[in-house]
């Protein structure tokens, strides 16, 4: 059962920020509720107030904007999986979204909520890191951009300040030579391991390699060392280096042993997924 709470329904980001500032830890932002309400029902967290942000206008927008794809934080997974714009510009994200949880979770859950809740076993953050996305955070006194790679701090912890609200995710529009892939593996409801790779392919050479791993450890993260190993190599050279890159990424994943698998098992799977993701792009 859900304990009693009060509902606030502000209509602007400034009002949300003001409420967060006023009520501190006793209030929490509420959007789709797919993760927050579960934690509240279990009694893991409790709030005196929920701040429903779904009355804010403009946060469900999805548009091409100045070299980037702008994704409003309130866009639901269902909106993303069915967007013609994303299908054209970011098909890897569409495929990821089509496989988030189940049809009911995708109907209610928002991309912003997914990112801010920062549940370790989540898909979007990992791919957004590899795609070089930035998060737009707003508060009463203004807004700032946070690189996706710097957004996730720890399990259930982001770099948002206490009175900040995530309003938008900006993904640079991939160029004609850009490739990306996201692969996950798991046997429970949530993924055990997720790996995202993005790169550009120019006359048989791979550049701008970005690799991110998620789910295995407390937070998704970029693996710069594995990226550096593959960057600037011919595809044949890069393919031959994949076992080494996979081992580096596996170690970097901060994998932990839990119900989703043992640490060494997850590290191994990171390598397998990295290899498959890479081969799917250069093959």
């Amino acid at each position: 059962m859900l304990k009693r709470f009060r509902l606030e329904e502000p209509e602007s980001a400034a009002e949300v920020s003001e409420l967060l500032g006023r009520f501190g830890d006793s209030a929490k932002i509420y959007a789709g509720g797919t993760e927050l309400l579960l934690a509240m029902k279990e009694g893991l967290v409790q709030y005196e107030r929920l701040i429903n942000v779904k009355k804010l206008t403009g946060l469900s927008a999805l548009a091409a904007d100045n070299g980037a794809i702008k994704i409003g934080a309130l866009c639901t997974h269902h909106q993303l999986e069915t967007s013609a714009l994303l299908q054209e510009k970011l098909p890897t994200l569409v495929k990821l979204e089509q496989n988030v949880a189940n049809v009911r979770v995708r109907q209610a859950g928002s991309i912003g909520g997914n990112l801010c809740f920062a549940e370790p076993h989540a898909d979007p953050g990992t791919l957004l890191i590899a795609l070089g996305a930035t998060m737009v955070a707003e508060k009463s006194s203004g807004k700032r951009e946070i690189a996706a790679a710097n957004f996730f701090v720890d399990a259930y912890e982001t770099s948002l300040q206490a009175d900040e609200l995530l309003t938008e995710i900006r993904v640079p529009t991939p160029g004609a030579n850009s490739r990306s892939a996201y692969l996950k593996f798991g046997y429970l409801e949530r993924p055990s391991v997720g790996v995202a790779v993005a790169l550009t392919l120019n006359s048989g050479t791979v550049n701008d390699v970005k690799i991110a791993v998620g789910c295995a450890g407390p937070a998704p993260k970029r693996v710069a060392e594995a990226e550096a190993l593959l960057n600037g190599k011919s595809t044949a050279e890069a393919v031959s280096l994949l076992p080494q890159a996979g081992a580096i990424a596996g170690r970097a994943a901060d994998a932990i042993s839990d119900l989703h698998g043992a640490q060494d098992y997850k590290e191994h799977i990171v390598g397998v997924l990295l290899k498959r993701a890479f081969n799917s792009m250069v093959g």
């Binding site: 509720g33 049809v103 209610a108």
Partner: peptide, 15 residues
């Protein structure tokens, strides 16, 4: 499962 505006939702986790 219930349908809200024709789409399935989990009524157990919908306010």
């Amino acid at each position: 499962t219930l349908l809200v505006d024709g789409r399935p939702v989990s009524a157990c986790t919908t306010l």
